[in-house]
Amino acid sequence: MKKIAFIFPGQGSQEVGMGSDIQEFSPEAKKVFTTADDCLKFGLSELIAKGPKEVLTETKNTQPALLTTSVAYLRLLEKEGISPTFTAGHSLGEYSALVASGVLSFEDAVTLVRKRGELMEEAVPNGEGAMAAVLGLAQELLEQAAKEVREAGDIVQLANLNCPGQIVVSGSVQGVAVLSEKAKELGARRVLSLEVSGPFHSELMKPAAEQFQAELANKEFRNAAIPVVSNVTAQAVTEGKQVANLLIEQLYSPVHWEASVRYMIEQGVDTFVEIGPGKVLGGLVKKTERSATVCFVNSVESFQETVQFLKEGDQK
Rank of each mutant, 00 (worst) to 15 (best):
S253C: 04
I155M: 09
Q315S: 14
P164T: 03
E301K: 14
A133D: 02
S260A: 12
V285T: 06
V191K: 13
V156N: 11
K316C: 07
V124Y: 01
L204C: 03
G153S: 13
L192G: 01
E195W: 00
S302V: 03
A244V: 14
G198T: 08
A208Y: 04
L76F: 04
Q166R: 13
M18A: 08
A145K: 06
S197E: 12
L142D: 13
A146H: 08
L204G: 11
I248V: 15
T238C: 09
T293C: 06
V168F: 02
E54G: 01
H256C: 09
F221I: 09
P207T: 08
L92K: 01
A72N: 04
L67A: 02
A29H: 10
S299L: 14
A209E: 12
S13D: 08
A234Q: 11
L137K: 08
M131H: 06
Q242L: 12
I167K: 05
H201I: 11
S91H: 04
Q139V: 11
G129N: 02
A123F: 00
E28F: 02
E94M: 00
V55S: 10
A259F: 03
E203T: 15
L284E: 00
A138R: 15
G129E: 02
K219S: 12
P27C: 03
S96P: 03
A159Q: 09
T69P: 07
T59E: 01
G240Q: 04
I226G: 06
L284I: 09
L246Q: 02
G282K: 08
E249L: 14
G10P: 02
V156G: 10
L216K: 12
K286H: 07
F212A: 04
P164N: 11
V176G: 05
K286C: 00
K311G: 00
G17A: 06
A29E: 07
V261L: 10
K316Q: 11
G89A: 02
A123K: 07
D37Q: 14
R75Y: 04
G136A: 15
P254S: 11
F309M: 13
H201C: 08
M120H: 07
R114I: 00
V176D: 08
F212G: 03
A146T: 13
L74D: 09
A225K: 15
E249M: 03
S101L: 12
G19A: 09
Q14C: 01
G313C: 02
I7W: 05
I82D: 09
I167T: 15
R262P: 04
P64A: 10
E148D: 15
L186N: 15
L40C: 05
C163F: 07
V196W: 05
E258G: 06
E215C: 12
E151Q: 14
A132P: 00
D108L: 07
K316P: 01
L192Y: 05
L74I: 01
N160L: 10
T57M: 09
V168E: 00
V232A: 11
T57L: 02
E28K: 14
E46K: 13
V16P: 04
R262W: 08
A214S: 12
D21N: 09
G127P: 08
K79A: 15
H90R: 09
P52N: 04
F86S: 07
L44T: 05
G198P: 01
K31Y: 10
R290K: 15
V294L: 01
E203K: 13
N162Q: 07
S105Q: 03
A100H: 13
G278L: 05
S253I: 02
G19D: 01
Q315E: 13
P254A: 07
